[in-house]
Each structure stands twice: as C-alpha cells, then as structure tokens.
Design a protein around this nucleic acid. Structure first.
Lengths: 202, 202
DNA sequence: AAAATAATGTACATAGTGTTGATTAGTGAT
DNA sequence: ATCACTAATCAACACTATGTACATTATTTT
C-alpha cells in the first residue's frame, strides 16, 4: 500500500504547490491567488490540488503550521536552563541568533507571509509561541522583582517589537548578520528603547 | 448640479457600504467578503457599489486612508513643541492619550482592521505614520547622545511594540483607560521592557 | 508483475465579477 | 414648487473561479 506519507508523487506534488504559493503570493498576495493559478504554476491538474487540500485556505494554514511547528521544536531544543541564568546583559541570546538563522534559511516564505501581502493570523501564531517561551523563561529567573505593568501588555510589547524588527530586517534584504540582529534586539529590550535612542534619563 | 460631496444619497450609500464592510469583515475577514455580500448587507443594488468603488480593494484602501488621514491630522494638532521638551520620565505623553481615545472611538473598525482578519498593509501604514512622528520628535530633542543601534531598527521596534499593545488592548475589550495605557507604554519605552518586567540589571 | 493509488482530463452546476443600457426616484438650485 | 441633474435600480451579459464527480492513465510500492 502506498503510504500517504512516503509516496514520492505526493511529496513532489505538495512541494510544487507550496513553492507556487510562495511565488504567487509575492506577486499578488494571498487574496489574489486562485487555485487555478497554483495548479498552473505548479504544472499539475487542478483536480489534483483538491486531492491534498480542501481549498487555498487549507493550504495556507497547513503551510503556516509547518513553520510554526519547526520554530517551536528548535526553540525547545535551544532552551536548556543555561540560557536563562546566563548573562543577559549585553550579550545576544544564542537562542535568538538561532531564530534569525532559521528565518534566514526560510527567508522567502517568511518574508511574504509576514509582509503586507501576508496573513495577519500568522503574526499572531508566532507571537503566541514567543510569548509562551518568554513567560517560561521569566518564570525560571531568580533575580527579579514584581513587574511594573500588566504582564499581558509587556508580552504584547516585546513580542510585537521583536517580530516587527524581524519583518523589517527581511524587507531590507537581511543586511545584518543573525548575530548583529540578536545583539540589537537584546540592547533594546534590556537597556530600553529610549536609552538606546540616546535620550538621557533626567 | 448635485455636488458629489453634498448629495445625501452618496453619503448615505457610502456609509452603508462602509458599515457593511466592518460587520462583514468581523464575520468572514476581508477575503471572504464579496461585493454581493456588501450590497446585500447595505441593502443597495450591486451596481450601485461600482458607482463609488472600483472593487472591494478600492473600498478597503479608501476606508483605511480615511483613518490614516485623521490620525495624521490629529497627531499634528497635538504635537506642538511643548510635548517634546516636556518631562518624558514617567508621565504619559498627552499625545499618546489622545491617540488611544481616538482608537477607542473607532474601536470596531480599528479592531477588525488590525486583527487577524484584517489587512497587514494597514499595520504598515500606521507604523509609518508613527515612525515619521517619532523621528521628528527625536530630531527636536536637545539632551541626547548618539543612538546605540541603527535608527531604522529602533523605529521598527518601538512602532511595532506600540501597535502590538494597542491591538492587544482592543482584542481584550479595552479594559484599561487611555491614560493607563499611555502610562504603560511610556514605562516600557523609557524604562525598558526588561527593567519593567522586574529583571534586575547586574 | 500485480495491486494500489496518485494524477489526469473532462464535464457540470453554482456563484461571483465587472459592465452596459434603460428606467425610476431623490436631490439641489432657482 | 418646479425642473434639470444624477444617484440608484433593475435586468441581462460574458467571463472567470469554484468544488465535485467519474472514467482513464501513469506511477509507485510491494
């Protein structure tokens, strides 16, 4: 029996479709993409598409979730307790460097999904992953005092800030190295945006 | 001659269409909304829609730009030099309070446009407005040292952070007052997320 | 080589799009 | 209050995309 996960034809077809999705979204955005477009670009029969996905929304979601899953897993991997109690001063977190490296590898997909033609829901999914990760880390830290603002707002602030910088980095063609970016992020988060901007505390 | 800006029928029709857009986007997201839906909900003839908008994308863009324009104007108004040299310590900026108030008044539209069913391009537009405003302010400040990271990244960081918090606030039903929110934002930006989180600087 | 199944090709009913032309109804200016 | 103007309606059009179905062909697995 042709196992549905090993049959080469299936893997091939799915890869064609997903590649087509990325390309077409760059051109017209998700809304503008039709199943016809996808199958033409992927050079497969239109009916074949429906053998694997319910519709284009289904395709989008499955593609997104795959990335989310990968991010989750490699966050877990790169997150032993060492990092937590490590020096958070002005050293970039290795975990963040790894994140940038992963994004760099999947730049084309990430850029279009996070960009103006992408899906806002994808932002939320990623921020959710970041948030959970941060809360866990915060929990494990020992040298801390009570937060000065509601944690929920703080989480929104930091996750959005980080994702926003990532997005901007992608849009500008990833001119900085993952290490530089991680350092920049760490500076802003630990020293604070105003301080980093050069605004003197009075 | 019925001036196209004063004819009641036009104003009425446009209002119906835009209200329908907000409602329908809450239900199905922009992608799911058809011109048919809009005109049915607005209770007008389908042909009438095309008298005012080229297509649904045109409608979206015009609706967005109207909000952007309003934000721009009232930012300008609330931005005399007083604010700049005012104490930026732990006082909420009056300008930010006003922004939250405006958003509160247009909550339904803002929430759906910024939410997971909204348009990512709208985020960019708003962040662009914020960025220009911030750069102007920064320019006018006197007590400052050179920035420690590229200004572009700093701007992405802060604008994304602020917008992210606004989004979260909307999604949670605006439980805090505009003043509280402005204070929270000011704390995080001027003291820094890590400090505010209670992480002691070593 | 045989069995299983992925992919194709074709056709169908359904629904949305954007446009047109004739008609009705509401509006602003006088 | 009237009248010229034009917004809005209605019906019809060709066109494109959707999702489904079924018989057929091609490829893969065992």
């Amino acid at each position: 029996m042709g196992n549905s996960k090993t049959d080469r034809r299936i893997i091939r077809t799915k890869r064609f479709i997903r590649d087509a999705l990325t390309e077409l979204m760059e051109e017209k955005g998700f809304e503008g993409v039709t199943v016809r477009d996808l199958t033409q670009k992927a050079d497969i029969n239109r009916g074949t598409f429906y053998l694997h996905y319910q519709d284009k929304y289904d395709l989008l979601e499955k593609s997104e979730n795959e990335v989310i899953q990968e991010i989750k897993e490699f966050i877990k991997k790169a997150n032993p307790n060492e990092i937590v109690s490590a020096n958070l001063k002005e050293q970039p977190l290795p975990f963040i460097i790894a994140l940038f490296e992963y994004i760099q590898e999947n730049a084309r997909f990430m850029q279009v999904m996070l960009g103006p033609k992408g899906n806002p829901g994808f932002h939320l999914k990623i921020k959710e992953v970041m948030k959970i990760n941060m809360l866990e880390k915060l929990e494990l830290m020992d040298n801390k005092t009570p937060p000065l603002v509601p944690l929920e707002h703080l989480m929104s602030y930091v996750t959005s800030a980080h994702l926003g910088v990532i997005q901007h980095w992608l849009e500008q063609g990833m001119k900085q190295s993952p290490r530089e970016m991680a350092l920049t992020l760490a500076s802003m988060t630990f020293l604070g945006p105003a301080y980093v901007a050069g605004i003197k505390r009075t």
